[in-house]
Simulated scan of single mutants.
Amino acid sequence: MNKTAAPLADLTQYEMVALESSHNLADAHAHQWQSAAERDVIDMLPKLWDESQTLTQAELDRQFLQNFFDFHGQTSMAANEGRSWLSYAASISMGIIATHLRLSRKSVTLIEPCFDNLYELLAHNELEVSSLPEDIVFKSPDAFAALALHEVGDALILVDPNNPTGSTSFVDDGERFRAIVRFCARHGKTLILDFSFASFLRGRRPDVYEILDDSGVTYLCIEDTGKTWPTLDIKCGILTVSADIRDEVRDLHTAVLLNVSPFAVRLLADFVTASKNDGFASVADVLDANRQVLADAIEGTELELVRPDSLVSVAWLRLHRGTATDLQERLAQHGVHVLPGTHFFWSDHRQGESYVRVALARDPEAFARSAAALRKVLTTS
């Protein structure tokens, strides 16, 4: 049996322990097997390698960005060059944003709950960070009015769809999102959006960059591939910014890195195309199947699924008895690893003691075994 010392310092440390287990339901990276279309890409690896050495980095980056934004329906940005830069991971993009906010001496309001490394990156830059409960932006009848009643810092950071809850502003043809943008534009707030889970909106996201640019708001947006495509953590983060801060953010970005591996960019471009060709079914179907298996596994136990606005690659579970800290440790002792809800509530861990998060992006057969192991602990301990 594996034992985890609890509580650990942050969620990533829980995920690191889980990597040692065959029942790793902790990290949200895409660990499922590749679809038939994606296996075709893998069969072409020697060809992709040679092309990566032949084409220029600029050509490869341009093709990847066009494929990526086209897949997400972001047509205005697919045709717009010079305001998007690549990095090895979304967290690198967030680190650059945190540096920009520190140099700009901005106070920050951050959505809660969210994955705690967002808060940590801000805190490490000695930024003043206040909490914004996600219901204010994602559940209030009038998001503009609700934000106006809340004390929002110089910069507002949202994760949309949110990790871990799946809550999103894209539930009404983008009207809620437009209200958030309108609030930030009118009140001079910098809007920072983490779209790392936006693939799972399944076509419900409008062209957000057109909305942002038309509003005149200052913005920074993060996109990511790592939560969507099973590429063994060969991934790419994308940072896109408004025209008014392009030069200053570009200088921060070039201080961090020159480029992402041309092979990684070439491979990811074809994975995106494969998903477009199969209608995203190879990813969405796996998540839907695993979500149902999980629902069956926890039936009659102290856990229940919280209904999400969007079917993201994680499940947020409410705990009716005991605490998340105790449950996570009990499961870990039997080799089953989930994330406690505590650290997602970065301003007060006690608020998360009634929740745990389960990752769904796993091979269905392996996930079924892990779900069975989860149920065994819940029903016998």
Rank of each mutant, 00 (worst) to 15 (best):
S140P: 00
S84A: 03
L132C: 02
S167P: 04
V108C: 06
R178E: 09
G153M: 04
L149I: 13
I97D: 01
N125W: 04
C114W: 04
G95V: 08
H100R: 10
V159D: 01
F71E: 04
E134L: 14
I111G: 11
L118G: 07
R102N: 09
V152F: 04
A89R: 05
P141N: 02
Y119C: 07
D70G: 13
E128A: 12
D172Y: 12
H100L: 05
R176K: 14
T109N: 08
S167Q: 13
N67M: 04
S107E: 04
V129E: 06
N162W: 08
S84R: 08
V108H: 06
F115L: 15
T75G: 05
P113I: 04
E175G: 11
N163I: 07
D116L: 08
S84N: 04
D172I: 12
L122E: 10
S87Q: 08
L122C: 12
S140Y: 01
N67V: 07
F177I: 03
I111W: 00
D173T: 15
D160K: 00
D70E: 13
I111C: 12
I111F: 12
V129R: 01
D160V: 06
R176Y: 03
Y88E: 13
S131F: 00
D154H: 14
N117D: 11
L156F: 09
F177Y: 09
L118W: 13
D135F: 12
N67A: 08
L122S: 01
S87A: 12
E120F: 13
D172K: 14
I92F: 04
D154L: 11
I157R: 01
H100Y: 15
S130P: 05
L156A: 06
I136G: 01
E175F: 11
M77F: 02
N117T: 13
T109R: 05
H100T: 02
C114S: 09
L149E: 15
N80G: 05
G174I: 07
M77G: 02
H72I: 09
F177K: 05
N67H: 15
S167L: 06
D142A: 11
N80T: 14
E128H: 12
H150M: 07
R178Y: 08
H100F: 07
G174V: 12
D142W: 07
D173P: 03
V108W: 02
A89T: 02
E126M: 08
L149N: 14
H124W: 14
G73H: 08
S76E: 10
T168S: 15
N117S: 12
M94D: 02
V159K: 08
N162T: 09
N162C: 14
S87P: 04
N125E: 13
G153C: 04
I96Y: 03
S140C: 10
L101K: 01
V152L: 09
A79W: 01
F68E: 00
S91T: 11
I96K: 00
G95H: 06
F170D: 01
D135I: 10
P164S: 09
G153P: 03
T168V: 03
A146W: 02
